[in-house]
Computed example of a mutant assay.
Amino acid sequence: MAKPVTLSNGRVWSTRSAALKFFKDMLARYEVGETVGLPGDHADLLALLVRYDAVLAPGEQGKIGVGVSHFSKQWASAEGYSTACFYVHRTDGTIDDFSYVRAINEG
């Protein structure tokens, strides 16, 4: 049975697959190093972070932190892999990557 995905900003997809495709396509619209500039994209990513933080295990640090300044597309590397992903830039100057896949699949 298909499970809908709903974000706090009111955006709804009828399936996880549709939501994953939406954010994959959004990521593809931007070049590595580019700031996410469209206001709708920013709003959707911010709502996705709310969902992401809601699925974290106790003790895991949330991605929103002190507040979000903007988002960008950057390279993330760890343990033998490198992939382009979204990064959150916080108002205190800190940055962190996050997985839209995790936010959708675990939410």
Rank of each mutant, 00 (worst) to 15 (best):
S72Y: 08
S8W: 03
E79G: 08
T6Y: 05
F22V: 02
V55E: 10
A84S: 13
V55S: 10
L45P: 01
T94P: 03
Y87L: 06
D97E: 12
L48P: 00
I104H: 03
S8V: 14
K73Y: 05
V32L: 09
T91S: 15
E60W: 09
G37E: 05
V50S: 05
R51G: 01
D97K: 08
G65Q: 05
G59H: 06
D41P: 07
E106Q: 15
R11P: 02
H70T: 13
W75F: 12
Y87S: 06
E34I: 00
K73F: 04
K24I: 00
F98K: 03
H42W: 08
R29A: 14
A18P: 00
D25G: 07
N105C: 14
L49D: 02
G65I: 03
G40W: 08
L49V: 10
K63P: 07
T6I: 15
V36S: 02
G80F: 02
Q61S: 14
N105W: 01
T35F: 09
L20E: 09
A47H: 09
R29H: 09
T83A: 13
N9Q: 11
S82E: 13
V12P: 04
A76M: 11
G40K: 14
H70E: 08
L27H: 07
A54K: 13
V5F: 04
V50D: 14
A19K: 04
S14R: 11
D25S: 13
E34M: 12
A47D: 03
I104K: 01
G107F: 05
S99R: 06
D97G: 12
F22L: 03
A18I: 07
H89T: 06
H42F: 14
G37N: 10
A28I: 04
D41H: 15
S72P: 12
D53Q: 07
F98M: 02
V5A: 05
R102M: 07
T83R: 15
V36E: 00
G37Q: 07
H70V: 11
E31W: 06
I95M: 12
R51P: 03
P39D: 09
G40E: 13
V101C: 04
W75V: 06
K24C: 06
L56W: 09
D44W: 06
A78F: 13
A19G: 10
V66G: 07
R11C: 09
N105F: 03
M26C: 07
L56A: 03
V12Q: 15
A54Y: 01
Y87Q: 10
S8Y: 04
